[in-house]
Simulated scan of single mutants.
Amino acid sequence: MTSISQSGFHVVYDINTLKRVIAFLELGFGWDNRRSKEILECLGSLDKETPKAALFSEHGQIKIAILLFEQNTIHSSSDKVINLSSWYAKESHRGIDAVRFAKKLTAKLSDYTITNYTPSSAVKKILIALGYKYMNVELFSYGVVKQFPFVQLKHINKKINFSEGAVKPVKLIYNRDSDISHAGYQLVTVKKFGLKLRILNIYLREDVSSVSFTWLFAQCLRNFVVRVNIYAETCGTSKEAPWLVKSFENNLYVHPQNSELSITQ
């Protein structure tokens, strides 16, 4: 069992400490308890040798923490892949303490290909400095946007196909016994101006060129979607790509199945 009474950096393998980490993150990010339970269920299903989180503690109190999702499936190659998720630090431990934490974490996970699908701009700067690279992925967004004219439909035919034979993505779930889908999706709920809005995120492998318009239209109507984000694998690195990876085999794309993106948001 991880002893956080000893101040310093710790990797978490046991369920009891994982529960404390999730509670710390729930308070920091303002999650609802339902999300915390789903995270615990997913990470709790991993074997006891698999790292599930990492933390920095002082005098028995967690000051910095992050979740670790092992992404391998039973059909994966021998390469080990782990996803960094929900990195949070108390205000007193941001800045240089967060950089030191990231450096220790990266060194500890040196046997893994490490992914991050939701880095903030500040986190990107830290991880890029530690040798992480932009993934071979490009983002296409449609629907409501912040800038005038507030609706983005440019190049909509580039990734959305009006033919009946176009791909219909399957819901991304955390299931290490399943094959990796070449086209997955996840619905995300965000709060803006006191309203709950739905965003549809779609994840495409390079061999999937476009998504079915009829499927997409039905999803948008059924779930009151205001924005669609399509993350498409590319054959080359795009500047300022939204995802990061650190791979000793120089693998610049990892599908987000079994990552934090598989958790309902």
Score class of each variant (00 low, 15 high):
residue 255 H to F: 11
residue 149 P to W: 02
residue 8 G to H: 08
residue 152 Q to P: 00
residue 166 A to N: 06
residue 45 S to K: 12
residue 246 K to H: 09
residue 68 L to A: 04
residue 61 Q to I: 14
residue 81 V to D: 07
residue 217 F to E: 15
residue 85 S to P: 05
residue 37 K to Y: 13
residue 210 S to T: 02
residue 18 L to T: 00
residue 30 G to A: 09
residue 21 V to S: 08
residue 132 Y to L: 00
residue 191 K to A: 11
residue 216 L to K: 06
residue 49 E to Q: 13
residue 186 Q to M: 11
residue 83 N to G: 06
residue 255 H to R: 00
residue 194 G to A: 04
residue 146 K to F: 14
residue 60 G to C: 08
residue 225 V to H: 06
residue 156 I to D: 09
residue 68 L to W: 03
residue 116 N to T: 14
residue 151 V to Y: 11
residue 178 S to Y: 06
residue 131 G to S: 04
residue 159 K to Q: 06
residue 180 I to W: 02
residue 177 D to W: 12
residue 103 K to V: 04
residue 18 L to N: 08
residue 172 L to A: 03
residue 78 S to G: 14
residue 253 Y to C: 07
residue 57 S to E: 09
residue 26 E to L: 10
residue 7 S to Y: 06
residue 256 P to A: 10
residue 3 S to T: 11
residue 149 P to N: 10
residue 40 L to E: 11
residue 206 E to D: 15
residue 209 S to F: 05
residue 214 T to M: 11
residue 63 K to M: 10
residue 13 Y to C: 07
residue 212 S to K: 04
residue 71 Q to P: 06
residue 239 K to Y: 14
residue 128 I to G: 01
residue 158 K to I: 15
residue 171 K to D: 13
residue 3 S to V: 12
residue 251 N to F: 08
residue 147 Q to W: 10
residue 155 H to W: 15
residue 203 Y to H: 06
residue 202 I to V: 00
residue 233 E to K: 03
residue 21 V to L: 05
residue 8 G to M: 03
residue 115 T to P: 01
residue 176 R to C: 10
residue 158 K to V: 14
residue 148 F to S: 13
residue 20 R to P: 09
residue 114 I to M: 05
residue 259 S to Q: 03
residue 89 A to S: 15
residue 219 Q to F: 04
residue 42 C to E: 02
residue 130 L to H: 07
residue 53 A to G: 04
residue 257 Q to F: 06
residue 14 D to W: 10
residue 117 Y to P: 02
residue 232 A to D: 04
residue 247 S to V: 01
residue 4 I to M: 09
residue 7 S to Q: 10
residue 50 T to I: 13
residue 1 M to V: 14
residue 3 S to G: 12
residue 242 P to D: 08
residue 117 Y to Q: 06
residue 189 T to R: 13
residue 39 I to L: 02
residue 227 R to K: 15
residue 152 Q to N: 12
residue 122 A to V: 04
residue 42 C to N: 10
residue 121 S to Y: 13
residue 53 A to K: 01
residue 79 D to T: 11
residue 220 C to N: 11
residue 14 D to E: 07
residue 117 Y to I: 09
residue 238 S to D: 14
residue 264 T to W: 09
residue 252 L to Q: 03
residue 203 Y to R: 01
residue 93 H to R: 09
residue 115 T to W: 06
residue 115 T to D: 08
residue 225 V to S: 05
residue 252 L to S: 07
residue 79 D to H: 12
residue 250 N to W: 07
residue 97 D to L: 10
residue 51 P to Q: 03
residue 242 P to I: 05
residue 12 V to C: 08
residue 210 S to R: 02
residue 212 S to M: 00
residue 165 G to M: 06
residue 179 D to A: 13
residue 13 Y to D: 02
residue 81 V to Y: 05
residue 91 E to S: 14
residue 87 W to R: 07
residue 228 V to G: 03
residue 188 V to P: 00
residue 37 K to S: 15
residue 146 K to M: 11
residue 145 V to Q: 13
residue 82 I to G: 00
residue 255 H to D: 00
residue 38 E to C: 10
residue 189 T to W: 09
residue 69 F to P: 01
residue 171 K to I: 12
residue 61 Q to Y: 15
residue 184 G to N: 02
residue 165 G to H: 10
residue 228 V to A: 05
residue 33 N to T: 13
residue 118 T to V: 12
residue 200 L to G: 01
residue 65 A to Q: 07
